[in-house]
Design a protein around this nucleic acid. Structure first.
Lengths: 189, 189, 189, 189
DNA sequence: GATGAATGAGCCTTCATTCAT
DNA sequence: GATGAATGAAGGCTCATTCAT
């Protein structure tokens, strides 16, 4: 019933694409099926409902983001300020490439939050909070409430990417955002 | 078709409430009518369609926010850092009180942006940008790109309000956000 | 929402007709709507679901049958054997005219029996049982178990009407059925 | 396509069970396959369609019933009244044990009657009619229309078995039904 | 102007049937 | 022969919109 992982991924890719371009109710499952080149009924072999598909997209995108940020931290031995600049850049590029992704969260906020989603979201915050805390411990950062700040950052990046002025350069955007965040944490730059 | 301003406001209030708590497609016009205590057909005397009602809510909420921020600036003779702290507080309280822009803005992002909405959104950014620019001119702030920063701020505030840890104090939250933003702009605090 | 009793009856009439000619799953609500000359959505103003419509048909038909039998008993002052012959005739004509009616019961048997339906069905049995008991009391009938016999009779009539040999005369059929039942109760004829 | 008789029987057994407990449209072929422990595709090696399976069940059940009744008559040398009491008992026990013909026959009534089904049904009636006729010929029974009476009996038995009052004893039930039928045929008991 | 019963286009979902393995 | 993933036609149901009152 769900052997074909490749097909499942194709459905998720398609759904991610479509959900990022239109609000939930404008995305038709017949479109998803057509674009993914599967039968409409096939969707239901892999996902219980339209909502289920939606959340699956959300979870996959978000967890791949968090994973890539975590990998970045693991594979590089950096100072907290370098780490923060790095993950802000990753986040920005991710949001920029697939502007929906973080946007999808808007929907989810009003829904009964699933445990899995809550856990995932917390893991992003924990990641930020951990960096900030290390920076504070090393005397690099100043922050009265790392938990709050961790929550700022994704919102901040999201906003700038969504509403980026036309013609902006992505690299510059990442640099600017990182600088702002680091200054916000008391780093002199 | 538009005599009864009081009724129109009641409809908008109701719609604002409902649209802020659920995704667009889960808000039924029959619910709006029932809660607003008007007939379903009456909605169409005041608004052309569901989309039209939605945008009317969005515009009203957003413009009242911008107006109250502008009023704050006009009625007080403050330094740029005081101004920024003030409007951040206003924004935070607004988002916190009516989490309207959760879904509201979420939906609108994927929609064909109307000119009016674009103008309104720009006015918020301009407001922030103006303060930042004045701060820079007065040597209070440092910022390489006030236009980008203006876009950060609302996203930042939105995020912290949406995902505020349980038990957080709103005043402290506002103070923290303001401090972060001001530090981000190079203010020593 | 359900002012128009006339429209509701038209829907019920149509549904009764269609449900009597085809099994449940072959009856399309779009057909019901078309034949009843109402919109498809209108059906849902009067009935919660297809099942609900089905049961409404069943209940209406059955209760009208029981009511007409009861009226026959009330309006005539007859001996038990005359009463029994009369109600058997009424039942036979009813089944014959709308062969579905009793047939519908087949479906209902396998369903979670609603209280209302149970009550209605019991009222038919009670009606038969009452007549039989009066007959016994007056020394006209012999029966060791009027409750069981009451359950026979509708099944008996149903069967003969459904499977009546081609060319049979309805009056003769009623007479024959009544005779059989009365003899079954020990009446010499 | 039809080698494995054992598997075919398992499918028929399962289908008989399920079709007798739920209306046609609620019985899913995937359920039949699962319960029968065969693949869904396998069903189509033995039966052309869902309808085909349905009628196969109906025919098998019904013909086994008729066969067992016929065997009873052949293997015992009885008087018509004994024969009738016997076959009524067989019928009652059959219906009682597998309420198959609740839904089964219910559905079939509204369907285009196949020739095979018609023939089978007629064989049951003929069996009853034959007994009745012999009883009349021997002066045991009185009946103006054995053909009609033959049609009563199965309906009568069916009804009592379906709607049997809770706690009833099957043996007593059979005795009572037989007595009623025999009295209906003018036998003094 | 106000209403809400009526409408029907359109979507999600189901499930009998097929066919590649 | 056996399987069950894949299919897509079809139907139940919803809900924005209309319009007669």
């Amino acid at each position: 019933m769900k052997e074909d992982k490749e097909k499942e991924q194709r459905i998720l890719d398609t759904a991610a694409e479509l959900f990022s371009r239109q609000p939930f109710h404008k995305v038709l499952l017949s479109d998803v099926a057509r674009v993914a080149a599967v039968g409409k009924g096939t969707l239901y072999l892999y996902f219980k409902s339209k909502d289920d598909l939606y959340f699956a997209v959300l979870l996959r995108e978000f967890s791949s983001l968090v994973a890539s940020m975590q990998r970045f931290l693991d594979e590089n031995d950096l100072t907290p300020d370098e780490e923060l600049a790095g993950v802000v850049g990753i986040l920005a590029r991710h949001v920029y490439a697939r502007s929906f992704n973080i946007e999808l969260i808007g929907y989810v906020v009003t829904c009964p939050v699933t445990e899995e989603w809550q856990r995932l979201r917390a893991s992003l915050w924990d990641l930020f909070e951990g960096i900030i805390q290390r920076g504070i411990d090393q005397g690099l950062f100043r922050d009265e409430s790392p938990a709050l700040t961790a929550r700022y950052i994704s919102g901040l990046v999201r906003a700038v990417c969504l509403f980026t002025p036309a013609g902006a350069d992505l690299d510059e955007l990442c640099r600017h955002a990182a600088t702002f965040v680091l200054r916000g944490l008391g780093v002199q730059r």
